[in-house]
Design a protein around this nucleic acid. Structure first.
Lengths: 201, 201
DNA sequence: TAAGATTGACAACGACCGTAGTCAAGTGAG
DNA sequence: CTCACTTGACTACGGTCGTTGTCAATCTTA
């Protein structure tokens, strides 16, 4: 029996390693989503995860690799939520957009840390800047692709602007700075997206 | 003759102290505007300013005080630029808005570090978060105040959204991510602001 | 039970941090 | 010239950082 298959406290090595990886990512999410980039140190992550530095380097080559793993996991979750919401929506643009916005709002209400990581962290951390640029397509393609093409530059201006508007609105909502009921926020975002879409036609 | 009035290398103590303060703020702007918050350490600022730590604490109680001074100076510059641009513009809404946007774009083209400090730093640094919240009024009041009142919540939603859109557009422009001529960016922002204003009526 | 895999606690390295202090050299006023 | 003020170079303290390594304790399998 090879070492990787030996059971230990009832689980295999691979299982335990995967579980530790999850713990580390969860700790990273906690730190990145609440205290910000500079709080995500290897030591702090390990303290939070109640694991030793050794296990950090078992799963990640360095600090940045953890940061990327945290971001990618949250982005994947958000993407999945959007995709299923859009798939289940009726085939009408307004309903589609509303479904997308609602699913995102629900995600960040359910766990505000994820909203912070998704929207704010890439603006802040050098390691995540590229990831932030990649989020924009994920976030707008679903809607934008359904629109008739127009001037490429115009679409880009609109996409960048809308993304910024949504980011700021969601972050303000998370802060409590934006004193608005959830439904009103959703409706406002939906209206904005539809207006932008109409403008890009 | 008191110590403060003695001349030294042709200048008074107060003058030299003020000059050192300016050097430190300039160094802070350089670091904050290019390398980001975490690069602004007391030692790095002093290295950049070619001054000793002693002179840092002569002008600032601690790191955060410098950060605020840097931000406030840039914000003041931006505010002044907006105010004079708007004052000199013809008394028509479109011209007003165009003047405001142009003046801001020129500011951040002239010195991109200032754009970064103004727009990005407050999202990033704990010490500047409150300042970021205060920028929004400065930035939108000039235009918003000229509009007929509407639902307070609606105005807030629009203001937050527009601010985010502008921020994202300007940052993308600074990055080079937004491959668009300056005039086109200005026109797009003007149109967006006017549309938003009409929406808030 | 003995051997080997696995774990946790912790030390060590060099680096940078914020902040405070020392000391010699330079400079101008009386 | 002398003295007081000013300056720059430097050291020191206690802390955290990323990363690697050590070592004894614990657990599973043969």
């Amino acid at each position: 029996m090879t070492a990787a298959q030996r059971t230990w406290a009832g689980t295999t090595l691979a299982d335990r390693k995967a579980m530790r990886r999850r713990q580390l990512i969860e700790a990273g999410l906690e730190l990145l989503g609440t205290a910000g980039t500079q709080a995500v140190s290897v030591r702090a992550v390990c303290r939070t995860a109640k694991l030793t530095e050794r296990y950090f380097y078992e799963s990640f080559a360095d600090r940045d690799e953890l940061l990327l793993a945290v971001y990618d996991q949250v982005a994947q979750e958000a993407h999945d939520a959007l995709v299923t919401a859009v798939r289940d929506a009726q085939d009408e643009l307004t309903a589609l957009v509303r479904a997308a916005v609602t699913s995102f709002v629900e995600l960040i209400i359910d766990d505000p840390r994820k909203g912070t990581v998704l929207l704010l962290a890439p603006l802040t951390d050098p390691a995540l800047i590229r990831r932030g640029a990649e989020l924009l397509p994920t976030f707008t393609t679903l809607i934008h692709d359904q629109l008739p093409a127009s001037d490429h530059t115009e679409r880009r201006l609109i996409a960048v602007g809308v993304t910024g508007a949504l980011t700021n609105l969601f972050m303000a909502y998370l802060n409590g700075t934006l004193d608005v009921p959830r439904d009103r926020l959703v409706e406002h975002c939906v209206r904005m997206l539809l207006t932008a879409a109409r403008g890009a036609r």
